[in-house]
Design a protein around this nucleic acid. Structure first.
Lengths: 358, 358
DNA sequence: AAGGAAAATAAAAACGTTTTTACTACGAAG
DNA sequence: CTTCGTAGTAAAAACGTTTTTATTTTCCTT
């Protein structure tokens, strides 16, 4: 019976199939495919031809077992905080999209791990590094003092973070210049005459939340004005949070006349709250938002934004991780993006405020 | 030198370490860990204790090589169509979140493959199945005649689709009752007096776009009214598409007095266009949207929605895939969700239309 | 008490690679 | 004409499992 050959033609060809087909040994086949210089050009040609003819594809599991590599790049993704399916984390689609594009064509597969809390994320990161579940790691939501960065830096496990911690460590990262962005937004509002500016911010555990406060405060300092620190709200970046904090802030004795918003889902909540309060944007209150998924242009009314497409950051994250896994030095793999200011409003309440303030 | 033992204590323990530690052979260790009935309860206890003591974790690559399984569940994710980073695909965060939650605790890892076109998705699906790059597959964006479903059904590769094709095939799937949803929205508008209703729909290659048209038409038929087929727009589900198609439709000689929108990013574009045209929602035009990420509540003005949290569908997708990979029958693994109607407007233009139409 | 069945474990083979080591020609040098 | 280095390839070992086959032990039966 030709059972053997029939079965073999069903299954995908292995290095052994190639050996039988070409007459070379499996060791030579492997070297030829890996581009080792010890095999002659002629044999390599023959082997490559046979590989193409049979549609040979290296078995990732065999390679992985022998080399200890996994050919996996893992991304830590925050699971939506779930309470009532509140809208947050939408930008992750574009982050993943960017990373996926960068990894496309490489030998690496993109895998995703969800986490529910920071401790959860730490535990997963540790497990991935200790057990070598992946060859590299990408994560975001960096804290001022981030245990993941400390741990991975020490163990030498390749990773790229979206965001910088506040410890003096050397590691590959991609970030947005949040200090600059918050400063730009706040300074613009102060120049427009505003003195009571709110900052709808992320939780202050996050490093970038602190960066934004820094920029916010610097803008006031540079203008010689006391910063409205009592108008800084911190929370999850859901739409509900944007709405609730706006309602609360506007209920204060000296409510804000302008708001700086940390992301687009929060902004939607802010706008919703302002509408509910009967306040007109550009008339009774000004709003400047940060946008990384290009949606603010469709808000009504359109608001001034600091725009940085996050897909670009995602792509860079993937590129950096590839280079890191190829042996590049982490110190060289850092980039901080400065968003673009898109002015859609005058942000001076139609000039009214500048008159009342000297 | 104690080099050997030192190095061994550094590396994670293997089945050999356990063998040396307990005195049993590696075969027995493997059987004990896998719960085989041939090993006595006493030895299993000893081995389990040693495994716990040494922190043993099975090496996935070794298992994968031997068993041919990969312990990977792969999701096909559409890459954002990218032209100008238009906002779309945001719901994928929640789909992945749901799947990740379902896979949590199982032996399976979630991996993500991005694709740029339907052909791309087909090629990837075929590669995953042929080369057994994963043990199961999840995908969405099902076409009326979907090559992936046909191919995977035939090859018997485990998969769950988000959406149903229009061919009479038996396969595991999760879906929304789009026909019902479109019917509910359209019928409500017709009951409110509308006769010129627009349907801002997905591209008609997609099966669910056809389902919505079916429901849309049925509502008209049941009311004894000619369906406004000329007001059906199909396109990508970006915000820009919502805006552009609304502007175009309202430019017609007999413009729609109401719009049914296919998802929330499109709805945002629709609302933006209506605002730009100076049309008030609930006054000059009514809008009913489909929402799967719980954001419509914050639109201003709020619109009536058909709400179905997509994270729930994601979780079910993961559950179904796990059961499928465990050997369950695909015929049993189907569920169609019916969204919830959340009426935030009267959707009858304040009663004005019902007066003019009998 | 010896034989044998059943139970428990050990040993070996296998999965598909890469890498190290061993072999075989062949040409150059003495 | 022999010896040796070298280039090219083959053979074998290893990665960590699971599974099949072989061996040992135990205990029952006659």
């Amino acid at each position: 019976m030709a059972e053997g050959s029939t079965a073999a033609s069903q299954l995908s060809p292995t290095i052994k199939t190639l050996a039988a087909h070409t007459g070379f040994s499996i060791g030579t086949i492997s070297k030829a495919l890996r581009g080792s210089p010890v095999v002659t050009e002629q044999t390599r040609g023959a082997i490559l031809a046979a590989a193409k003819e049979l549609g040979y594809q290296a078995n990732a599991r065999g390679m992985a077992l022998r080399t200890g590599k996994t050919y996996q790049a893992t991304v830590l993704m925050p699971l939506t905080s779930a309470a009532g399916y509140e809208w947050d984390g939408v930008e992750y689609t574009q982050i993943l999209s960017g990373i996926s594009q960068a990894l496309d064509g490489s030998d690496y597969q993109l895998s995703v791990h969800g986490y529910r809390s920071f401790d959860d994320a730490c535990a997963i990161a540790r497990r991935v590094a200790d057990q070598k579940l992946a060859d590299g790691l990408i994560f975001s939501g960096v804290l001022a003092e981030d245990a993941r960065i400390a741990m991975l830096t020490q163990s030498g496990f390749p990773f790229v973070s979206l965001g910088r911690c506040r410890e003096p460590l050397v590691y590959a990262h991609v970030d947005v210049d949040n200090e600059w962005a918050a400063h730009a937004a706040t300074a613009r509002l102060i120049a427009g005459g505003h003195r009571r500016v709110a900052l709808i911010n992320a939780d202050q555990r996050f490093s970038y939340a602190l960066d934004r406060i820094d920029g916010f405060v610097r803008a006031f300092r540079e203008a010689g004005v006391d910063p409205s620190l009592d108008l800084i709200a911190g929370g999850d970046l859901s739409t509900r949070f944007g709405r609730d904090s706006t309602l609360a802030l506007r209920g204060l004795p000296q409510p804000p006349t302008a708001l700086v918003c940390v992301n687009e889902s929060t902004t939607l909540g802010v706008l919703s709250a302002l509408d509910a309060l009967g306040l007109g944007v550009g008339e009774d209150v000004d709003v400047i938002a940060y946008d990384d998924i290009n949606v603010s242009a469709y808000f009504t009314p359109p608001v001034t934004t600091l725009y940085q497409p996050i897909e670009v950051l995602g792509r860079r994250l993937g590129e950096f991780l590839l280079r890191l896994m190829a042996g590049d030095n982490a110190a060289q793999l850092t980039e901080v993006f400065r968003p673009q200011l898109i002015a859609r409003q005058a942000d001076n309440l139609g000039g009214r405020l500048s008159r009342s303030h000297p």
